[in-house]
């Protein structure tokens, strides 16, 4: 556990928490960007350079902006005056704490049984590309198809009625 891990993890958790707690939806999305960037730093720290950069590119650059657009489209720029959380927020939080406790227990117990790993190689872009176009070529094609379908589907869904023929 290095210092850089704790910094990155701190940013991730703080961003995620703020995204789920803050009242203003746009603030939530901005906090989410911080969380995603922190997570990308964790990936970099793990030696997965490509995944970390893809994380920033896709999540911070695209998904967060998309969410912000949808917030503006659906409720305008006004502040929401409704309470941020439902009445049963305590129940939800308690449940989440329970889930975390179980997961943490399993992690600590489980990892202790694993052997200490050898020093691994890190993910070169070449190795990723090689794997993607040889062993994983079918999933790659399927993912491409899925993205195309999702693109068309999202456009059709968000289009206004009667605009389709235009």
């Amino acid at each position: 556990m290095s210092f850089s891990f704790f910094v990155a993890a701190g940013f991730t958790v703080a961003g995620a928490l703020a995204a789920m707690v803050l009242r203003n939806l746009i603030h939530c999305v901005l906090a989410l960007v911080v969380g995603f960037a922190g997570l990308a730093a964790v990936y970099l720290q793990l030696g997965a350079q490509f995944v970390g950069l893809a994380q920033i590119f896709v999540y911070a650059g695209a998904v967060a902006i998309l969410a912000a657009f949808v917030i503006l489209l659906t409720q305008g720029v006004e502040h929401s005056t409704r309470p941020a959380a439902a009445m049963d927020w305590a129940v939800g939080a308690l449940l989440a704490c329970g889930v975390f406790a179980v997961l943490a227990w399993a992690v600590v117990r489980g990892v202790a049984r694993l052997p200490i790993p050898a020093q691994p190689s890190d993910a070169g872009v070449h190795a990723i590309g090689d794997a993607m176009l040889h062993r994983f070529v079918l999933p790659l094609e399927v993912a491409g198809l899925l993205l195309t379908v999702a693109l068309i589907g999202a456009v059709l869904l968000a289009m206004r009625d009667g605009e389709a023929g235009a």
Binding site: A48, F50, V51, A54, Q55, V58, Y59, A62, V63, L66, A67, A123, I128, A131, M132, R135, F136, P139, L140, A143, L146, L147, V149, A150, L151, G153, A154, L157
Partner: peptide
């Protein structure tokens, strides 16, 4: 790594839809 990359791609599609 590959699984994570595909998962990022699928998550992007999921968010869009």
């Amino acid at each position: 790594v590959l699984f994570a990359l595909f998962s990022i791609g699928v998550a992007a599609a999921e968010a869009a839809v």
